[in-house]
Every structure is written in structure tokens, then in C-alpha cells.
Amino acid sequence: MNWEAPKRPLDHTESTLVKAVLDDTFPIGSKLPGERKLAEMLGVTRPTLREALRRLERDGWFTVNHGKATVVNDYWKDGRMNVLSNLVQHAESVPPNFVANLLQIRADMAPSYTREAARHHPDEMTALFQQGINLPDAVDAFAEFDWHLHRTLTIASENPIYTLIMNGFTDFYENMAQLYFLSEPARRRSRAFYQTMHDLIQQQDLVKVETAVRTMMQESIDLWPGRGLT
């Protein structure tokens, strides 16, 4: 692993340690080198290293045992919300099935926040889906709109927790969308979905709105490039 001297020591230290866990330089359950050695490896001072470890311990990456070696936690079991942001920032090193799990979370949430958005703001949501119907057949257009669509739906649901979760995945979501919409069938299916949603929201058939979203979210998982979902 390439340990480069940082311009922003604290940020560099946190980022490098997270990447070292993700790429198994420091596997789950292992112990970190001693403070002096690790600080030298990172090219930072020991106080900077201590602060980085304190922050990462708070997020669930490590257990710091004063006077003993720091242990790498199982971040899937011990991690807190910030772990998701860390994973998104290290997309090249995310564990297998991370994308599949992320898409499944969206599939679980989207029916609820779309139903509530349609309930609270039917006219605005109808107009929103009309924008999707009118999109040019271009990858960038679909990728940008799909992010805008889901984020707007979370806001319109009037449950801000959905939006906070969505915001944590902004860059990663947009990158995934670029890959997904390379497929012409994916773009065609999404346009048909936008039309269906436009019509159902106009009719205020909220049960069918929820069902249609759930079906589409599952189809998007099935259409993911290569079905590798990694």
C-alpha cells in the first residue's frame, strides 16, 4: 500500500486507515501496529493519529484499547451511519455485494417515500414524472434525472430521514446510475415507469403507486449490468 505524506493530515489519516481496512491491509479482527510505527507509516504526528483513531472508533471502525493494541472491528456489525459515507468515498474498495445491498435498501424505502410524496404533493409529483417521460434518450440525462427524482420524492414525502440517507450516497448513486443507464432496455423501462407513475398519481391510486414502485425497484436490481452487483 502506498502511504503518502498528506496535505491535510487528519483527513488523510482517516481515509488511509479506512482504505487499509477495506483492502485487508488491516483485516477485520486484526491489531494495528503500535502508535509510533503507524504514525511513521502514515507520515503524521502521533497526536494526529490519536485524533483520527478517536473519530474512527466513534464511527465503529476500531476499538482503541489504551495501553494495548487497537483492534479492527467488523464494520458491518459495529459500524454507525458514518461508515456508509466512508464506504461511498472508497467506492473502488467496497466489499462484494455492496451495490446489491444498497439497491435493496432503495427497493425497501422507495415504495414508502413515493407513496407519501404522491399523497402530500400530487400535482408536483405528476409534473416531476412528466419530466422523466420527456427525457432525451441519453445516458447522462437519465442518470441525472433519476437522482433528482428520488431525492425530490424523499423531500416531498415530508420524512427528512429519507433525504438524509439519500444525501449520503449522492456521488456513488450518480456513478451507479451512469452504469445502469448505459443499457437501452433500462432507459426504455424507466421511461415506461415514469409514465405509469404519472398516471397513477393523477388517479391518486396510492396502493398501485406503492406496488408499481416496488416492482420497478426489483426490476432495476435484475437489470443491473452483468447482475454482478459488486
Rank of each mutant, 00 (worst) to 15 (best):
R106I: 08
V83R: 02
H120C: 04
S85M: 00
A118S: 11
D59E: 14
A69H: 03
M109C: 03
E144K: 12
M125D: 06
N134P: 12
Q89M: 12
V94H: 03
E57L: 13
L135W: 15
P122T: 11
G67Q: 05
D137H: 03
N101H: 13
P122S: 10
R55W: 14
P96C: 10
D78S: 09
A69L: 03
I133Y: 13
D140E: 02
S93A: 13
L102T: 06
N101R: 12
I105N: 11
F142E: 00
A107G: 15
F62S: 07
F145W: 10
S112I: 03
W147K: 01
A107L: 15
T114G: 07
D74G: 03
Y75E: 03
I105C: 13
Q104Y: 14
H120N: 01
N82E: 13
V83L: 06
I105D: 08
Y75M: 05
N65K: 12
R106E: 13
T70Q: 03
M109S: 11
A138T: 01
P122F: 00
P136E: 01
L87Q: 03
G79D: 05
K77T: 04
Q130H: 15
N86H: 11
D146A: 12
H90K: 07
R119F: 08
F62M: 07
Y75D: 11
V64R: 13
G67S: 00
S85Y: 09
R115A: 06
L87C: 01
